[in-house]
């Protein structure tokens, strides 16, 4: 029962985090949420009995991607003051 509750909660949090990552207007915040999403995802993989993938997800999805995205976001902000302000759906 507790396991089921935990799984449902995990799934819900993943969904909410994913939604927030996409809709957040602040770039840096979005990156942080993405890292959190990656870590939760690693937990989800563990729950699915896939420790290999959990390891890879934590290392690559949260760790490496997090560093790359953080650095990029920070750099963009420092150099151009470029914040995601909506309306540029059309780039990416």
């Amino acid at each position: 029962m507790t396991a089921l509750l935990f799984d449902v909660l995990l799934a819900l949090m993943l969904t909410v985090l994913a939604w927030r990552v996409v809709t957040t207007r602040e770039l840096l915040q979005s990156v942080v949420l993405f890292i959190a999403y990656g870590l939760l995802m690693a937990i989800a993989w563990t729950r699915l009995d896939a420790p290999d993938i959990a390891l890879a997800e934590a290392a690559i999805g949260a760790g490496l991607m997090g560093v790359l995205l953080l650095d990029t976001a920070g750099e963009l902000r420092r150099r151009h003051g470029w914040r995601s302000e909506g309306g540029d759906d059309d780039t990416a």
Binding site: P51, D52, A54, L55, A56, A59, I60, G63, L64, V67
Partner: peptide, 17 residues
């Protein structure tokens, strides 16, 4: 056990970074 080239590579890469 769980582990292998990909995981090891990322950890080593983190060291390089």
């Amino acid at each position: 056990a769980p582990g292998g080239a990909f995981q090891a590579g990322v950890v080593l890469g983190a060291a390089g970074a």
